[in-house]
């Protein structure tokens, strides 16, 4: 797929978030860790809400987690998603104690439940964008 045919919204990365998106292209899920107190956080932010340090590093997450909640979309609110209805969005508690959202792949609707183990996989969307998805663990 080329960028000219990619119809979905693209993330507008900032210098604060670019490492997250770059990592995905390398098949890695990375999250911020405070350089001062070590606490992990996601989505990326500028300041550690625990100790207010502005220094952080990017650490690789295991990529495993459990389902916190979900929804299955039956209506496309953006033309880019019309072709893949219905699709399921998972809210996942990562093993590192932070949450993220991504689409489910290959998990039957009847299997969805809180606590279901999942793991991250990576899908190439465009030359410059790889998106995380979750599959059964």
């Amino acid at each position: 797929m080329t960028e000219t045919t990619y119809m979905k919204p693209l993330p507008e990365a900032s210098p604060d978030t670019l490492p997250f998106w770059k990592s995905l292209q390398d098949g890695k899920l990375r999250i911020q860790a405070c350089s001062a107190c070590g606490k992990l956080r996601h989505y990326p932010r500028q300041v550690c809400p625990y100790c207010y340090s502005m220094e952080h590093k990017w650490v690789e997450a295991k990529g495993t987690g459990t389902i916190h909640s979900w929804t299955t979309a039956h209506h496309a609110f953006h033309p880019g998603f019309k072709g893949e209805l219905p699709y399921t969005l998972l809210t996942v508690d990562l093993a590192e104690g932070v949450r993220m959202q991504a689409q489910a792949r290959g998990i039957a609707a009847g299997k969805l439940k809180i606590g279901l183990p999942v793991k991250v996989a990576f899908e190439i969307a465009t030359r410059d964008l790889t998106l995380p998805v979750f599959v059964s663990a």
Binding site: P9, P11, F77, H78
Partner: peptide, 13 residues
């Protein structure tokens, strides 16, 4: 940045 690209576009979702 982090959810709309995955398909979580509107408040309903």
């Amino acid at each position: 940045e982090f959810e709309m690209p995955m398909g979580a576009i509107a408040p309903a979702q």
